[in-house]
Amino acid sequence: MKKSEDSESHTISVLVDNEPGVLARVIGLFSGRGYNIDSLTVTETEHEAHLSRITVVTAATPMVIEQIKAQLARLVPVHSVIDLTVSGPSIERELALIKVGGKGERRVETLRLADAFRARVIDATTESFVFEITGRTNKIDQFISLMEPLGLVEVARTGVAAITRGPGGLTPE
């Protein structure tokens, strides 16, 4: 997907009925209409009420962002759609597991940087570490790029979870 000049990144949370196929509907909407998905997370958030929360990070022109929100809102099992990027202050976090190999001096440098980023060692061998790091997407990106020359082996990321600040919440209408 080509990104045009005035493309901006938005984090959109969608509260859906947790019924079979609902994720396919959302993903199909994005692929079918040619929208970007930069990150996508989904899990049941309220078991009793059968609600799931889908968080999508997408990049598009303002007009297309409005389209995406309207298209999401008209899916039958969707309760509500909120654009966290414009709805006021919000917090975004992502978790990543990062495996870095290497021996000798490089391991010291790796640990020093991990410490600076508050990445925790959750597995270690004499020639590798697995770090757990949480933070905003760009913090994780930055950490990964620093690890690359030091022996980055692989990365697993959860995608973005996001929520508004303050007492208000995303509720079914």
């Binding site: 007009m63 409005e66 389209q67 309207a70 298209q71 809102a73 008209r74």
Partner: peptide, 11 residues
């Protein structure tokens, strides 16, 4: 009646 029709092609 469909909000997604609005501003899709023409502002």
């Amino acid at each position: 009646i469909d909000a997604s029709s609005i501003n899709k092609n023409v502002h």
